[in-house]
Design a protein around this nucleic acid. Structure first.
Lengths: 215, 215
DNA sequence: CCGCCTGTGTAACCTTGGTCACATACACGC
DNA sequence: GCGTGTATGTGACCAAGGTTACACAGGCGG
C-alpha cells in the first residue's frame, strides 16, 4: 500500500540496507491531513521528517498582521529544509507548514532520521534537496529585499504556461501582497500588451517583455 | 604554525582519522586577504570550504543599485552556510563574501570536503552550523519582509553593550538602508530618551524601551 | 589660522505599496 | 430573469522609506 508509493517517490529508501529501511518504515507514522491543515508552526518542536506521498506542504513565514510570506513548497518526493534544519540543530520550527490539498505523508521520528543520516546515500539525498532549497531562499531574500512588486509579479507569471488560472487574490498571496496591488499591476501589464486578462485567468502575450520587466 | 591554530579553532579536525586529516591539510591551501577583499561573488563556482583562522567574512546579497544586504558573518571557528550549500549542491555562489579585516583562512578543495563529509563527526560539524545559520536566515527574512526600520534599528542597537561606537553610515549598512534614515530614527530615539547620541557613538539609555520598540 | 575631510542634521520631495471604500461584472442556482 | 456570492476595477488617501541637496560642526594637518 503506502510502502510501494513511498519507495517509488523516494527511491533513496531502496538504496538503504534492507534491515535499516524496514526498521525505519516500521517506526514511521502514516499521517493524512485535509487541505489547509497546519502541520507545524513557529516555536513548535520538530516531531520528525516527512516523506510526502500526496498533496503538498506550503511553508510560510507568518507576519504579525496576519499576512503570510510563502517560503517554498514541498511536493511528493521532496524534503522540507526547515524540518531538516530543525532536526539537525535540535531547534524549534521558525515557520509554518500548511497542507495545500488533501495530503498524505509518512513521518519519520527524529531518532530514526538521525540513524538514517549515518547512511551516505540518505545523507546525500537530504543535502542535495537542502542545497536546492537554500538557493530558493536566497532568491526569496533577494526578491523581498530588492525587487519591486511589478518585477516580482512578472516573474511569478512566467514559467507557468501560456494561460494561467488563478484569482488576483491567489497571486497576491504568492507574493505576500494584497489583491488591489495585483489588480492594478495586471491592468498596467495589460495596457502594455504584456498579458490579456479574463476572469480567473491571465494569458501571457509577451513572455519576453515580462522577462525584461522581471529583470 | 597555521596547523596548530587551525586545530584549536576547529577541534573537529582532531576527531578525524589522523591519516585523513593529514591528507586534507596537505591538500588545503593557505589564503591571506586584506580587509575588504571579495573572496567570492554571485555566479562564481565554489572553490572550496574555508576554515577561518583570523578576521572574518561578511556575506552579503548585492542589489542592482549597489546597496548590499548583510546576510551573516563567518568568524574563526565557524563555517559558511552558502559555501556548504554550493558544495553540496554543486551550484554557483548566490551571494558575495567580503573580508571584514585582514583575514587568513585555510581553503579545503571541494573533493577533499566531499571526502571529509563521509565522516560522521565532520558531517555533524557542518550540519550543526548549517542549522544555526538557517535560523539566522529565517530571522533575516522576517526582518526585511515584515519589520519596520525603526524596529530593526532598535534591535541592532541592543546586545552590543551600553555604548556603541559606529557611524550612522555603518549602522545603515548593517540594515541595508541609508544614512539619512538612520540619522532620523536615532534622533527620534534620542527625543524619546532611549539613547544619547555623540560623534561615532550611541549610548543606550533605556534598553527595555528599545526592546519594546524592536517588538 | 585656514582649508579640508568626515560625520551629522534636516527639509523638501518622490515612489512604492498598502488601506479603505466603493462600484461593477460575471456566474450560477432558482 | 433575479438575487447572491465571488471576482475584479478603481480612486482617494496614507505611511514608510529612499533621494536630493544642502548646512553645519568638529578635528586635523599644513
Amino acid at each position: 500500500m503506502n510502502a510501494n508509493a513511498l519507495r517509488n517517490l523516494y527511491p533513496v529508501l531502496d538504496q538503504l540496507p534492507a534491515a535499516l529501511r524496514d526498521k525505519a518504515l516500521r517506526q514511521a507514522q502514516d499521517v493524512a491531513a485535509p487541505a489547509g491543515a497546519v502541520l507545524f508552526d513557529e516555536q513548535q518542536p520538530c516531531q520528525g521528517f516527512p516523506f510526502i506521498l500526496e498533496g503538498g506542504i506550503r511553508v510560510v513565514k507568518p507576519a504579525a498582521n496576519g499576512r503570510e510570506l510563502p517560503l517554498y513548497r514541498v511536493l511528493p518526493g521532496e524534503s522540507c529544509i526547515i524540518t531538516s534544519s530543525c532536526l539537525l540543530g535540535h531547534a524549534d520550527y521558525n515557520a509554518r507548514g500548511i497542507t495545500e490539498g488533501p495530503t498524505t505523508l509518512v513521518l519519520l521520528p527524529r531518532d530514526v532520521f538521525d540513524e538514517l543520516l549515518a547512511q551516505p546515500v540518505f545523507r546525500d539525498f537530504v543535502f542535495r534537496l537542502f542545497a536546492e532549497r537554500m538557493a530558493d531562499l536566497m532568491q526569496l531574500i533577494e526578491e523581498v529585499a530588492f525587487r519591486k512588486l511589478d518585477q516580482r509579479l512578472a516573474g511569478l507569471l512566467l514559467g507557468k504556461g501560456k494561460v494561467l488560472h488563478a484569482t488576483h487574490q491567489q497571486l497576491a498571496d504568492e507574493l505576500g501582497s494584497v489583491r488591489e496591488m495585483v489588480s492594478r499591476l495586471l491592468k498596467s501589464f495589460a495596457e502594455q500588451g504584456l498579458v490579456r486578462l479574463g476572469r480567473e485567468q491571465v494569458e501571457i502575450l509577451d513572455p519576453a517583455g515580462l522577462r525584461r520587466m522581471a529583470g
